[in-house]
Design a protein around this nucleic acid. Structure first.
Length: 804
DNA sequence: AGTTACGGCC
């Protein structure tokens, strides 16, 4: 085998085992090309020379030195410092010993203080002092001090010392100033293995795996250095980062050839690498073959199962760890295990881990708390998640992301947006993960202006070309009422996947433009994209909103026969909406009875809406009973039923429901509508009088109401009216928020542009019919987005075909 | 007397 190895500069790989054979690598020039060339040019020209020893031969005979050393080496810094204060301190050696002690005990600030004190007392820092001080700057993330120390050591001519330069490389890499690390590396006259290793691990620590691997190869091929365990561990970390199994296997081969496949840390890194590259099977085989397992190795394997969506194996691995090796689970075990419980929504085991962590004193712990937030979020316990978030003494971007995702996953969109707003006041900037989590919340509740803002931030982050993000944007623009922009983003998208198509089909669906959805579906098939289950959710939603009953049935039937997709519960839900539209309640009821899946609250919800449209209170009561047995806090259900009772004047039942809601502690969602003008958002409640132009708005509303011939109850409240009339007046639709918002929109939004209103709850029938008339008499397009869809009112008609 | 190090959260 005489191939050149891209990563391992070594020859004969001889081994009989399968795994080892797998590993014997083939050349892959693409990988070399993929790694962009970040490594300093001079690295390729200067060859490492033998290390120039710079060992101080000074003798250290000051009294107490021996004791000082042993105190420091034993870690008793108290004693060391006490002794130090009583010593003569003319020799840098004693200072170095103390600074080293402080640094290795994590007292970085104090170490830096001693460095300054030393200079103040006239003792010159020597070549041994600087690595300790630089390490202290690294540990305390102190860039300013680091720079000062760096310029000082250049002045006194220590910038050629290999130990000092190596420390500087690590410092700059840890401070994420990789360019400075590269410059130190580049300007070194002599580099040793540690210099290279520091550069490699530096690239890994900032997430630049390919640069690390490139560096790893350069070290071997151009300089002829053999990687040691440090280089190997870092290089494996780089493979994990990039998920490159091929490179990982090559390095595995190298470890076997170099003989440090028996190194415990290397073994752990290998297991980790295989799980991160998606090969739990390789990791497992390696893991099983190791006889001396450390807690770190067990944790790596448990975490590997979690990562690869194998929660049960992860849990089994924990049990084996407890039985076989009697290891005590540590904080990392807990952290590795939690994603498993999160995945399967296993609240109880998750809580057990939480309790265990509390008993063990693991908390507070940034990463553990974040993992708990994630677990509680995925188990539907947003309140628990928030409680942990609130109590955290320290938070990073990941914790924020986890909390935001917890809100979004559970439909708490407004809370998610509020938290996202708070995030801007924190010292870290939202990243791609944050955006990915928050975009669905923007789609559900944000205004177009806010959506545009987040879009421009996405452009600034340079993640707009990501198919995943673009798909979310398509849906978000559609949900915010801007179908045109949604379409433009879709059209510009270079790599359209099935989700892109699903999104754009859904975009037209929620605006009631069914023909466009159907057209896109056939275009999609022409492009050779295979529809999936979600495609049919989009399509059937489109058919239901646009009232395309026949097409709906056709698609529903073709799912199984033509595409081999079994209809899921969402598909049955869409069909029920379609049936509901056709006013055939009998069929709707039968459809539920005969469907092969257990009806969910959403299914009964469809029946409830259908009953409401057909004014069938008995069926509505049945649907409501089922909904409330599944979701006792479904306020929408109470309200709908109560409205139905009110419409027929059954006030006792209205009261009964009101009492039920009060007893349950559920509050009716107060309806509001928002409209934008000139970059400002205007929010209206029912009967809103708070707006600066209130009288003008109400004037417009009066005129409009007259024009569309509605009776007016507003502003003439008198004391002695029959009860139901008073009730009716208090809820009179003329001053429903949406009406006020439309009126404000009519006078503020420039002519020619549609009036865009967003509403948090379903638009009521009276307002719907009024909006149609308004569009007719004013000749303007009014678009009202409610949680389900966007009603396009044009020339007296609505895109929903009067069923919503 | 000094420099590099495995497993963790979205």
């Amino acid at each position: 085998m005489s191939t050149t190895f891209p990563l391992c500069y070594s020859h004969n790989a001889g081994s009989s085992e399968n795994l080892r054979r797998d590993i014997s690598a083939k050349t892959d020039h693409n990988h070399a090309l993929a790694m962009n060339q970040r490594v300093p040019k001079s690295a390729r020209t200067i060859r490492t020379q033998s290390k120039i020893a710079k060992i101080s031969t000074r003798r250290h005979n000051l009294p107490g030195t021996r004791d000082l050393l042993s105190y420091v080496n034993l870690g008793s810094m108290q004693d060391a410092l006490h002794l130090f204060e009583n010593m003569r301190k003319c020799d840098p050696f004693v200072w170095n010993v103390v600074i080293r002690g402080l640094t290795s005990n994590g007292n970085y600030e104090e170490a830096i203080d001693f460095y300054y004190r030393m200079q103040f007392e006239g003792v010159r820092a020597d070549n041994f002092t600087y690595p300790f001080v630089i390490k202290a700057c690294t540990g305390s993330f102190c860039f300013i001090e680091g720079q000062k120390v760096h310029s000082k050591l250049v002045k006194v001519g220590f910038d050629l010392d290999i130990y000092i330069c190596n420390s500087l490389i690590v410092m700059y890499a840890k401070l994420r100033l990789i360019e400075l690390a590269e410059r130190v590396f580049e300007e070194m006259p002599v580099r040793d293995l540690v210099s290279w290793n520091s550069m490699i691990s530096g690239y890994v620590s900032i997430g630049e795996g390919w640069n690390a691997l490139f560096c790893f190869r350069e070290m071997q091929e151009l300089v002829g250095l053999r990687p040691d365990r440090f280089s190997t561990i870092s290089a494996l970390g780089a493979c994990s980062l990039e998920g490159t199994l091929r490179c990982g296997k090559e390095i595995h081969g190298l470890t076997i050839r170099s003989g440090f496949e028996w190194d415990v840390m290397v073994q752990t890194s290998l297991v980790d690498m295989y799980t991160k590259c998606g090969r739990v099977d390789y990791a497992e085989r390696l893991f099983e073959s190791l006889s001396n397992k450390s807690i770190v190795l067990w944790n790596a394997m448990i975490g590997g199962y979690s990562l690869n969506g194998k929660p049960l194996e992860s849990f089994a691995c924990l049990k084996k760890m407890l039985e076989d090796d009697n290891f005590n689970p540590d904080v990392i075990t807990a952290i590795s295990l939690l994603p498993s419980f999160a995945q399967i929504g296993a609240l109880l085991p998750g809580k057990t881990i939480h309790g265990f962590a509390i008993r063990k004193g693991f908390l507070p712990h940034l990463v553990l708390e974040t993992a708990l937030i994630d677990m509680y979020g995925k188990c539907g316990k947003v309140k628990f998640a928030r409680k942990i978030f609130n109590h955290m003494s320290e938070r990073n971007l990941v914790s924020w992301n986890a909390m935001i995702a917890a809100y979004v996953q559970n439909g708490h969109n407004s809370e998610a947006l509020e938290l996202f707003q708070d995030l801007w006041r924190e010292p870290f900037n939202p990243g791609a993960t944050t955006i990915t989590s928050i975009l669905p919340a923007y789609a559900e509740v944000a205004l177009l202006r806010e959506g545009k803002q987040i879009h421009s931030y996405i452009t600034k982050l340079n993640i707009g070309s990501s198919t995943f993000i673009s798909n979310s944007l398509v849906y978000m623009y559609a949900k915010c009422g801007d179908l045109q922009t949604a379409r433009e983003i879709f059209d510009r998208l270079l790599n359209k996947d099935v989700i892109s198509w699903n999104s754009v089909i859904m975009a037209y669906a929620i605006h009631g433009f069914g023909e466009n959805s159907v057209k896109l579906f056939s275009e999609m098939r022409e492009e050779g994209i295979k529809p999936n289950a979600s495609t049919f959710v989009s399509l059937l939603t489109s058919c239901s909103i646009a009232g395309m009953t026949e097409e709906g049935w056709e698609y529903f039937n073709s799912m199984k026969t033509d595409y081999g997709i079994d209809p899921g519960i969402e598909h049955y839900g869409c069909m029920l909406d379609i049936i509901g539209r056709s006013r055939n309640l009998e069929l709707a009821k039968r459809f539920i009875d005969e469907m092969p899946l257990v009806p969910t609250a959403r299914i009964w919800g469809s029946l409830l809406v259908a009953s409401r449209h057909n004014r069938n209170i008995e069926l509505a009561e049945l649907a409501a009973k089922h909904i409330l047995s599944l979701e006792h806090d479904n306020t929408g259900c109470y309200v709908l039923l109560s409205n139905m009772y009110a419409e027929v004047g059954r006030w006792e039942d209205v009261e009964r429901i009101k009492r039920l809601m009060n007893n349950g502690g559920f509050e009716r969602n107060t309806g509001y509508s928002t409209v934008e003008n000139n970059g400002k958002t205007y929010k209206f409640n029912n009967l809103d009088m708070s707006h600066i132009n209130t009288s003008l708005i109400y004037d417009v509303m009066y005129i409009i109401s007259k024009k569309i011939r509605e009776d007016i109850y507003v502003h003439n409240v008198t004391k002695f009216r029959p009860l139901d009339v008073i009730r009716k007046r208090l809820t009179s639709p003329e001053c429903h928020s949406v009406r006020l918002a439309i009126c404000f929109g009519l006078i503020s939004v420039s002519l020619g542009s549609p009036v865009l209103v967003r509403k948090n709850i379903r638009i009521c029938e009276a307002c719907h019919s009024a909006a149609k008339k308004i569009s007719e008499v004013t000749g303007r397009e009014v678009v009202v987005g409610d949680p389900k869809m966007h009603h396009h009112f044009r020339n007296g008609r609505c895109s929903c075909g009067d069923y919503w």
